[in-house]
Simulated scan of single mutants.
Amino acid sequence: MNHPALLALGATVLCGTLAVAGVHVYAAGRAQRQALVDRLAGGGPIRTVAGRVRRFAGIDRRLRRTRLGRAIHLRLTTTGLDLTAGEFTTYVAAVVVALWLIAATTLAPFFGPIAALVGIWGAAVFLNWQRQKRIEAFIGQLPDVARLLANATAAGLALRTALAMAAEELEAPAGEELARVADQLTLGRSVDDALDELAERLPSRELIVLVTTLVLANKAGGSVVSSLRNLTQTLEDRKETRREVRTMLSEVNATAFTVPLLGLGSLLLINSSNEGALARVTGSSLGQGLILLSLGLYTVGFFVIRRLGKIEV
């Protein structure tokens, strides 16, 4: 056997050996990683703090690697919902498919994609509504937060200790958010950065005023007790004003949602009184264009009414 043949045989044996070793190392590493995941998960299904079993863990892991998954996860953390990105995406996908089938069978096949788009838009609106609801609840607790911080500071406690004490005394969402701030301070983060992140997570004028007061007092010193007590009274007055404004605008907000529902009801009434009417209307390009135009006008009306009924306090 000549030298080139020996070299080719040796290279083949070497490549095969390296391939087998690589597969072995990969399998061992994958097994160790799975063992670590199982050990961290307690050897069973992943559960929440309340004991609920997490669903769709595999989908959540894959989704969190994407930019969309990370964006959904960040949005969910600001809403306070006990859902992962995988769970939320799976539920939304199921609702979108159901809306598509219902609209296609009840009205006409043309309305299936429109209903799916409405479902996706509704999911985004739901997240924004949950976030705004959490912000409103947090704003309602801000007078108690300022009062507790003022009392703790008057007793001689440091601001870090006062924040931790307020986190233990208050209920959610203020207790949860202040507990997150206290945990960040325990890990060595500065008071300014932790409070600034809180203001970015739950943006509101009242919280910005409170955070600015605490940051300035932490940097420059001064009578933080009197400032917090004056701020407490101001926050109480703003709380009452916001409640009165929300009560006065409740009819406007109800009208904004009633108008699109009337349009949907008219479509159902037309299709039920004359079966197949919508299918015949959407069977031509002119009919589809008119339907899209009417839906666009209803959408514009919804946003215009919502805009007219929005008052910044």
Score class of each variant (00 low, 15 high):
residue 4 P to Q: 09
residue 6 L to C: 10
residue 7 L to C: 10
residue 8 A to H: 10
residue 8 A to Q: 10
residue 9 L to C: 13
residue 11 A to V: 14
residue 12 T to W: 10
residue 20 V to F: 13
residue 22 G to L: 12
residue 24 H to N: 09
residue 26 Y to C: 07
residue 27 A to E: 09
residue 28 A to E: 14
residue 28 A to P: 00
residue 31 A to P: 01
residue 34 Q to A: 15
residue 39 R to C: 02
residue 43 G to W: 03
residue 43 G to N: 06
residue 45 P to S: 14
residue 48 T to C: 01
residue 49 V to F: 14
residue 49 V to C: 07
residue 54 R to S: 04
residue 69 G to L: 06
residue 75 R to H: 11
residue 79 T to L: 03
residue 82 D to F: 02
residue 84 T to N: 01
residue 85 A to C: 08
residue 87 E to G: 05
residue 89 T to A: 14
residue 95 V to Q: 12
residue 98 A to E: 07
residue 102 I to P: 01
residue 102 I to L: 13
residue 108 A to W: 05
residue 114 I to Y: 05
residue 116 A to C: 13
residue 118 V to A: 12
residue 119 G to F: 04
residue 119 G to H: 08
residue 127 L to R: 08
residue 128 N to L: 11
residue 129 W to D: 05
residue 129 W to R: 14
residue 132 Q to Y: 14
residue 133 K to M: 15
residue 138 F to Q: 05
residue 139 I to V: 15
residue 139 I to Y: 06
residue 142 L to G: 03
residue 142 L to S: 03
residue 143 P to R: 01
residue 143 P to T: 05
residue 154 A to S: 06
residue 155 A to N: 09
residue 181 V to P: 02
residue 185 L to V: 11
residue 186 T to Q: 11
residue 187 L to Q: 09
residue 188 G to P: 13
residue 193 D to C: 01
residue 198 L to N: 04
residue 206 E to H: 02
residue 208 I to F: 01
residue 211 V to G: 03
residue 212 T to K: 08
residue 214 L to Y: 00
residue 216 L to W: 05
residue 219 K to I: 13
residue 223 S to V: 06
residue 224 V to K: 00
residue 226 S to F: 06
residue 226 S to T: 08
residue 230 N to H: 07
residue 230 N to Y: 03
residue 230 N to L: 04
residue 233 Q to E: 11
residue 235 L to Q: 00
residue 241 T to K: 05
residue 247 T to L: 10
residue 251 E to D: 03
residue 259 V to K: 04
residue 259 V to N: 06
residue 261 L to Y: 09
residue 264 L to A: 10
residue 270 I to W: 05
residue 270 I to N: 01
residue 271 N to G: 00
residue 272 S to L: 03
residue 275 E to P: 02
residue 277 A to H: 06
residue 278 L to W: 04
residue 288 Q to C: 08
residue 290 L to R: 01
residue 294 S to W: 05
residue 297 L to I: 13
residue 298 Y to I: 13
residue 302 F to Y: 15
residue 306 R to C: 09
residue 306 R to P: 04
residue 306 R to A: 09
residue 306 R to L: 15
